[in-house]
Amino acid sequence: MKAIYILWFRQIKRYSRSKARIIGSLGQPLLFLVALGFGFGPIYTKAGGGNYIQFLAPGIIAMSILFTATFAGIEVLWDRQFGFLKEILVAPVSRVEIMIGRTLGGATVAVVQGVIVFCLSLIIGFHPTNLTLLPLALLYMGLIAIMFTALGTAIACVIEDMQGFQLIINFLIMPTFFLSGALFPMESLPKAVRFIAAINPLAYGVDALRGILVHGAHLGLITDFTVLTSAAVAIMVLGSYLFSRMQV
């Protein structure tokens, strides 16, 4: 337990000391919010979709969590390069604890980013319909963050070089993002594409956030919760195994 706590705390400490990271990773979501929000807004409204910012904001919050969380895996590679990974691996700590500690650390950072993006979206004109549901939104943000941090961390256990890691992550992240319903509704898409959305965990996260912040979820919060949680648990199990196989 203490090991999980200290691995988590270490990542929070490192994050809070790196102002560049905090500010740098806000650029992209802000750009998406402003450019897409104001750019496509009028077309979306004309097509009878309503206020586009209302539709877009939950998707961009999910996006910023997706990006921050998956890329958090790269910290394993930094630790490998700077040698601290050896210190963690020889410690009498179960590999499950290592996986959980690292995942929670990265996920917390991702949720913080998500909350900052949420606040930015308020400035741009997003109106959550029910502010009392914010804690629930936070829960789902946490689930998205945990699932994707675990994924990034597990991948970092296998891919040992930075460029390779970034390539793979980009390769995974882009379709995950575009086919999640974050930018446009998935209902009108061809069946084949909708199938991809059905196996895309982020689609469930976006659905839940939109449901909570704006109006009822299509897939249902329970389904969203179940899918995100089972995916997260499965990847954590895999990650723990990969940590136990790791050699440095």
């Binding site: 090991a3 040698g83 601290f84």
Partner: peptide
């Protein structure tokens, strides 16, 4: 090398002790 360079000397000791 195997220290966390972004942490202080004391923190490196402290975290080790907790692990």
């Amino acid at each position: 090398p195997s220290l966390d360079e972004e942490l202080t000397a004391y923190e490196n000791m402290e975290y080790h002790g907790i692990l």
